[in-house]
């Protein structure tokens, strides 16, 4: 039953135009486009991680948030409450379906890196990227669910998801260094789960584990999942 639900959910999610633009075309275009103009191996590795995580955060917060809000408005969760499948399992299926897609996009980016820029990643690095995608999916999708539970309509959802996701990206070292940034920005970046995802990703590309960042991201994931569960509403 779960397998069937997950397969059909994946089919529904993959046809989402938002997902295509924000999580596939934008990160892929960004990586290939910028990667061709900057030929430093270290820059390209950082860019690959940034593109991978951009796909993850946009897909998990913005697209997943919109999808959840649409289902709320259609009464899908009310109908699910009347079904035999617990809503928590349904949400887990949707997170797993999205995770499969994030893994696919990451594989596509790694393949592009290998074919176009001769970039390599070790087996350990690959496993760490997979772990990052799993923890990141839980953390950022939970944020998307929490926002969707608060948004009353598409306009509010758009505003709220943008207000959360864009500062996360800008207050991180994904695309630039924050060494010269004001102290308060550096402080805010320390409260930003996306920054820890970036650090884990960069270490993974070098085949190493950034244990403190991993632990912090896991903590963020637990807290965000807790908030998403507490704030989740059927209507």
């Amino acid at each position: 039953m779960i397998r069937s639900v997950m397969a059909l959910m994946a089919k529904s999610i993959y046809k989402d135009a938002y997902m295509l633009v924000w999580s596939i075309l934008l990160p892929l275009g960004l990586f290939i486009g910028l990667g061709m103009y900057h030929d430093g191996a270290s820059y390209r590795a950082d860019l690959l991680v940034a593109s991978m995580l951009l796909s993850l955060v946009m897909g998990a917060i913005n697209t997943s948030g919109f999808w959840t809000m649409t289902q709320h408005r259609r009464g899908v969760f009310k109908l699910l409450k009347l079904s035999r499948l617990p809503i928590s399992q349904f949400i887990l299926c949707s997170i797993l379906a999205r995770l499969l897609m994030f893994v696919g996009i990451a594989a596509l980016l790694l393949l592009a890196g290998f074919l176009l820029f001769d970039m390599r990643i070790s087996a350990v690095g690959l496993m760490l990227v997979l772990a990052l995608l799993i923890i990141g999916s839980v953390c950022f999708t939970s944020i998307g669910y929490a926002i969707a539970s608060r948004a009353r309509d598409e306009g509010m959802m758009n505003m709220m998801s943008t207000v959360v996701s864009f500062p996360m990206i800008f207050l991180s070292t994904a695309f630039y260094s924050l060494d010269q940034a004001p102290r308060w920005i550096q402080f805010l970046s320390k409260l930003n789960p996306f920054e820890y995802a970036v650090r884990i990703g960069r270490s993974a590309m070098a085949g190493a584990v950034d244990v403190p960042s991993l632990a912090i991201l896991v903590a963020f994931a637990v807290v965000c999942a807790g908030i998403a569960i507490r704030t989740f509403r059927v209507e």
Binding site: M1, S4, V5, L8, M9, K11, S12, K15, D16, T70
Partner: peptide, 16 residues
């Protein structure tokens, strides 16, 4: 569920 046809929608809700 948008993105799914009538057949798949019925199948999905049968599964849940």
């Amino acid at each position: 569920f948008p993105g799914l046809g009538a057949y798949d929608n019925v199948k999905l809700f049968a599964a849940v």
